[in-house]
Amino acid sequence: MTDLSAADVTDLFRTVSLRIGEARAALGALDGAIGDGDHGNSMAEGFAALTRALVSATREGKGAGELFPIAAESFLDAVGATTGPLYASAFLSAGQLFSGMDSIPAARIPELVTAFHDGIARRGKAGVGDKTMLDAWRPAARAVAAAGPDPLAALAAAEAAASEGRDATRAMVAALGRAARLGSRTLGHIDPGAASAVIILQGLREGLTARLARGAS
């Protein structure tokens, strides 16, 4: 099966960054309804900075596994806020998984979903139904655990589960973060963090689909 080099992993993140960038305004609008409206900007700036950092790291000859701590640091420095530490933890957790690896087998890419979830959960400590990004990441990670060996099918299952989780946040009352102060006024609104989680998963699947279509390198 195909292995993903550092350049390939950078491409994956580039696709994610592209899709997050396209959703910048939409995510901002979701956040404006129940938060302060900065989620679209934070995510877009964060992934843009991350992609820039990965591009130069790849150029310097870093291995695929070495990219994740760089992703964490660049994202965190660009974003701060809540999103920064949460996704930085996600990327660090993925880094432990692939540490020292020059390339990553395509079959192991869905493990990113699990690692992202674990990192976010450790840092954020949100519970089920707290109306946070974990309400999308948690079902996604479980879908990956239940999926078969085909990485694209696993990512598709993760994406579907995350979408369902995202939609379910509509019926939740925020328990953490800035939206928590709005209490029941958050009902009926999708959590922006759950929405961007789905976009990340879509980007990963799109990126991996494109990479596998090119065949072994």
């Binding site: 302060d36 409206g37 900065d38 420095d77 701060g80 806020a81 920064g84």
Partner: peptide
Amino acid sequence: VGNIFAAPPPG
């Protein structure tokens, strides 16, 4: 200070 209405990173 961080970005507008967003916390600064730890660095």
